[in-house]
Design a protein around this nucleic acid. Structure first.
Lengths: 117, 117
DNA sequence: CGCACATTTCGAATAGCGACGAACTATGGA
DNA sequence: TCCATAGTTCGTCGCTATTCGAAATGTGCG
């Protein structure tokens, strides 16, 4: 992941409403939730919600599909994993205790990269 | 971690300059780096850098200590881990494949919380 | 004390974000 | 075709974030 898309993703999450939406979708799982239900759950106006869903979509953290009259939104786990990995890249250099569990997320061991931990 | 502090931390990282600083400090490890060296590395004006370091400090992602005439900044791994954990809270409900590695970060297994994965 | 270095604080200008009302598009059914 | 439902797009306004120059603080050394 590049710095630019990481900043975009972090900006998308750095907002109380959007963070709530994202976590709601993470909990909802792969089936996702229709925009209307998100609006009802969070009590946000439809147009404001739509704008925020758009920002989340643009960041890649959320995907959408139409189903009849509803549009269903889902969290994109892969993008999320990439973001977490990016944040902790090269943390090996200084701190082995946090590196080990993070390497699991990244799907690669530190040893494979020739680092000390 | 509460939503408010998560938003604060994410806002702190949602900035190209600050994200770069944070990742630099993550790579630098527990010993950290003096502000002057960060300024030299990133090519940012000292006052702008100071402002951004302040924002990172307020978010808890970075800590500082004085050492002679320099002020040394370090990444706070624990706060970072709390943030990652918060983002993925309850992801179990829908997706076992991503839940497992994330549970390692959180320092607790999903089974311990009585979930299916 | 006086000076130089390292960093922070202050104040002002600029730009971008966020929320809302109103109008628009898309889908499905009578 | 006409209508109701589900979401989106547009335009506007207020607010906050970001940056910079200039000045201030804090620290060590001679």
């Amino acid at each position: 992941m590049e710095t630019t898309s990481a900043v975009t993703a972090l900006s998308a999450l750095a907002h109380e409403g959007r963070l709530g939406i994202f976590r709601l979708l993470v909990r909802a799982g792969p089936e996702g939730l229709p925009a209307g239900e998100i609006a009802r759950t969070t009590g946000v106006l439809p147009n404001t919600l739509s704008s925020n869903l758009n920002i989340l979509s643009a960041s890649g953290l959320v995907a959408s599909r139409r189903e009849g009259r509803s549009i269903i939104y889902t969290a994109t786990y892969e993008q999320m994993r990439d973001l977490l990995t990016f944040l902790m890249e090269d943390c090996c250099a200084g701190n082995a205790t946090i590196c080990a569990p993070l390497a699991v997320i990244a799907g690669q061991s530190c040893a494979a990269e020739g680092r000390s931990c």
